[in-house]
C-alpha cells in the first residue's frame, strides 16, 4: 500500500497525543499530579496539540476536506466514522482535565472522574484508528490480530516517553511512573513488532491469482497482458512494494530507534533529575517518535492488496 505522508504523520502524532493524554490521566488518577502545577497543563496542551495536528493532517489527503464534517455520520458501520466521533468526543474530557489542572482547589473525585473519561476516550480513539486497518479483508498484513495491539502499544510507548521527558527534570514519582510505564510499553512494542513481522513473513495472503481469476482449475495463473501500459489509480495506491532488503534494514531501525534507544535512555534517566534527565528523556521521546514514523511507513509499504493480483502480483 502507498505510504501516504499525511496518514503516517496523522497516525503517529495522534497516537502519541492520545498516549500522552492517557499517561497524564493515569497520573491524575493515581494522584501524582499536583493541582495547579505548570507541567501537567503543558503536557495536556502538548497532547491536544499532537492530536489536533494529526487530525488536521488526516484531512490533507481528502479530495474534499471541506466535506470532512460528513464523516461523523456513519458510525453505525464505518470505523473511520467511529474514529472521527471518538476523537471529537475525547476533546471534552481532555479540555476539562486541562482546566482542572490549572486550579488547585478542585475536588479530587472530579479530577479522577474526568481523567478516567479522558483515558477511556484516548484508548477508544486509538482502537478505532487501528480498526480502520484491521477491518480491511483484502489486506492480509492488516486484517489480523496484530494490528490493534500494535497501534495501542506504539501509542502508549511514544505517549509515555513524552510524558517521561516532561517530568524527568523533577525526578518526582510522576517521572518514575511515566518512565516505568514507557519502558513497559517500549519492551512490549519490541516483542509485538517482532511477532508481527514473523507473522508477516509466513502468512500466505488472503487470496491468490488462481482464486482472483477463478482459473485455478486449469493450472497456475499468471498475467499475460495488463489492461494498459501505464499505471492507474489502483496500481499507484495499492501497488507500492518495498524491497525485501530495505524492509529488513528499516525493521532494524524501528527496533533500535523505536524501542531499544528510548528504553535505555529512560532507564538511565530514572532516579536522576535536572538537565541530564531532561536530556535523556528528550532523546527517548524523539527517538521513539522517529521509530514510530518508520514503523508506520513500513506498516503501509509492506502491506499487499489483493487487487494487485489482477496486475501481475503472484501473491497477495
Amino acid at each position: 500500500m502507498h505510504p501516504s505522508t499525511s496518514v503516517i504523520f496523522f497516525t503517529v502524532a495522534s497516537g502519541a497525543g492520545y498516549g500522552l493524554l492517557a499517561a497524564l490521566a493515569l497520573l491524575a488518577v493515581i494522584g501524582l499530579i499536583v493541582p495547579g502545577g505548570g507541567l501537567p497543563l503543558l503536557g495536556l496542551l502538548l497532547a491536544l496539540g499532537l492530536i489536533t495536528a494529526g487530525l488536521l493532517s488526516s484531512t490533507l489527503h481528502l479530495g474534499h476536506p471541506e466535506r470532512a464534517w460528513r464523516a461523523f455520520s456513519q458510525w453505525r458501520s464505518s470505523w473511520l466514522s467511529r474514529e472521527g466521533v471518538a476523537s471529537v468526543a475525547t476533546y471534552l474530557p481532555a479540555v476539562l482535565l486541562a482546566a482542572l489542572f490549572v486550579r488547585a482547589d478542585v475536588p479530587r473525585g472530579l479530577v479522577v472522574a474526568v481523567a478516567v473519561l479522558a483515558f477511556a476516550g484516548a484508548v477508544a480513539t486509538v482502537v478505532c484508528t487501528a480498526m480502520i486497518y484491521r477491518s480491511l479483508k483484502p489486506i492480509g498484513a492488516w486484517h489480523n490480530r496484530h494490528t490493534v495491539p500494535g497501534y495501542l502499544i506504539i501509542g502508549a510507548a511514544t505517549g509515555f516517553a513524552v510524558a517521561y521527558a516532561l517530568f524527568a527534570g523533577t525526578g518526582s514519582s510522576a517521572a518514575w511512573v511515566a518512565g516505568i510505564g514507557a519502558i513497559v510499553a517500549l519492551s512490549a512494542g519490541f516483542l509485538q513488532k517482532r511477532a508481527y513481522w514473523r507473522f508477516l513473513d509466513t502468512e500466505d495472503g488472503p487470496a491468490s491469482p488462481e482464486s482472483a481469476t477463478g482459473l485455478g482449475g486449469i493450472g497456475r495463473v499468471r498475467l499475460l497482458d495488463p489492461p494498459h501500459t501505464g499505471p492507474n489509480f489502483v496500481m499507484r495506491e495499492m501497488g507500492y512494494a518495498v524491497a525485501r532488503r530495505h524492509a529488513e534494514a528499516l525493521r532494524r531501525i524501528v527496533l533500535v530507534a523505536g524501542f531499544v534507544v528510548p528504553a535505555w535512555a529512560i532507564a538511565l534517566g530514572l532516579g536522576l533529575a535536572g538537565g541530564l534527565a531532561v536530556g535523556l528523556g528528550t532523546v527517548a521521546a524523539v527517538s521513539a517518535l522517529l521509530g514510530a514514523v518508520v514503523e508506520r511507513w513500513l506498516f503501509f509499504a509492506e502491506a499487499r492488496h489483493t487487487a494487485m493480483l489482477y496486475y501481475g502480483a503472484t501473491r497477495s
Binding site: M1, G63, H64, R67, R70, A207, V234, E237, T306, Y311
Partner: peptide, 24 residues
C-alpha cells in the same frame, strides 16, 4: 457527499473503484 478519503477503494478486493484526481 464523497469526501475522497479512498477508504472504499482499499476495502474492495477487486480493485474496482477508481479515484478521480480531478474531481476529488
Amino acid at each position: 457527499t464523497c469526501i475522497g478519503c479512498k477508504l472504499c477503494s482499499w476495502a474492495c478486493p477487486y480493485g474496482a473503484r477508481e479515484y478521480d484526481e480531478d474531481e476529488g
